[in-house]
Design a protein around this nucleic acid. Structure first.
Lengths: 149, 149
DNA sequence: TTATCGAATGATACATTGTTGCATTCACTG
DNA sequence: CAGTGAATGCAACAATGTATCATTCGATAA
C-alpha cells in the first residue's frame, strides 16, 4: 500500500476513534482494501479481498453493514453510478464529494468544489427542499485515457 | 394522465421522430408510463405497468433496452441513487439534469441549473477530464414532507 | 469476577436489479 | 419478393442488495 494510502487509512481510523465509533478489525479490513485499491470497488469485490486477507468467509450482509458504517463516518463514499465504493480522503471536514469517473480506466477522482454544493443548495432552498446528501458524479474520460484512444 | 404530462409525452415523441429515431408502440408505452407516474419508477415497476397496458408479458431485457434508448434520446433520465427512471421535461435542449429526491415521498423534482454544469466542467477541464455525462442528485426532504414530520 | 446489555457479526435465505446470447419478427429498401 | 438492419422475444443467469434471526464480543456495573 502506498504511503499516502497508509496515511489516509490511519487518519480515517483516528477520526472514527475520536468520535467514539468502533473501528473493529473487519471494518479496518474493508477500509484498508478500499485504500489499497486504485479504483472504486464493488461490495462483492471487497468481500473477496477481505476474505483473502482474513482467510475465511464473510457474509455479504456484513460487508454492506460495514460499508454503511464507513459511509456514515465519512471515511468512504458510495459512487451511485458504479454501485461501488471509494475511500474518502478528508473525512474530518464535513463535505460534499464530487467525482470524476473515467469510463475507460474505471478510476474515480475526487475533486473538491464547495461552490457546487452551495449553488445547488440555494436552488433547493428556494423550493423549500432540505438537502441531506448530495451525489455529484461526472463520467467521461480522464486525460491519460483520452490520449490512449 | 394530466394535461401537462400528455403534452410532455407528445413533445418527446416528436423530438424522437424529428431525429429519425423509431418511436415504437412499446417505447411509447414505457414513456407513457413514466409520464403518468408521479415519482421515479424502477425497471420492473415499468414492466408491470406496461404488461398491464399491453395485456401481455414483456421480457426484462426489452424494458432495459427501451430505457437505454429513451435515456439516449434525452426523453428520460435514470436516477442513479434510486435505480429508477423519470420522464424528462425538456429533451429538445441538450442539458444536464439536477434532481431533488425526497426521501419521504419518493418524488424527484428536476431543476435546471446550467451553472452547476459549467462549474464542474471547468474543474474537470483543469484536470484534462472530458465530461460526457453528469449525475447530480440531491436527496433530502421536500417542503410538504418537512411539514408532515 | 461475573452478570448483563447493546453493538457487531454470522448464517441462511431471499429479493431486486441488470445482463448475455441467440432466435425471431418487423419494417424498410432494392 | 428477397435482403438487411433494427427491434423485440425468450431463457437463463449474473450482480447487487436485504430481511431475519442467532450468536459472539466487549464494555460496564453489581
Amino acid at each position: 500500500m502506498p504511503r499516502e494510502a497508509s496515511r489516509g487509512l490511519n487518519s480515517a481510523i483516528n477520526v472514527c476513534r475520536l468520535r467514539g465509533a468502533q473501528m473493529t478489525p473487519l471494518r479496518q479490513g474493508v477500509l484498508k482494501a478500499l485504500w489499497s485499491a486504485d479504483r472504486p470497488l464493488g461490495a462483492y469485490d471487497l468481500r473477496d479481498l477481505v476474505e483473502k486477507a482474513f482467510d475465511r468467509q464473510i457474509p455479504a450482509p456484513s460487508i454492506y453493514r460495514i460499508l454503511d458504517f464507513l459511509c456514515e463516518q465519512g471515511v468512504a463514499t458510495r459512487i451511485e453510478s458504479l454501485n461501488a465504493y471509494v475511500a474518502c480522503g478528508h473525512p474530518e471536514r464535513d463535505h460534499a464529494c464530487v467525482f470524476l469517473v473515467c469510463e475507460a480506466c474505471g478510476d474515480a477522482t475526487e475533486i473538491e468544489n464547495p461552490k457546487v454544493e452551495k449553488l445547488i443548495s440555494e436552488d433547493a432552498k428556494r423550493l423549500g427542499f432540505v438537502v441531506k446528501h448530495q451525489v455529484v458524479e461526472m463520467s467521461g474520460l480522464c486525460a491519460p485515457c483520452q490520449q490512449a484512444s
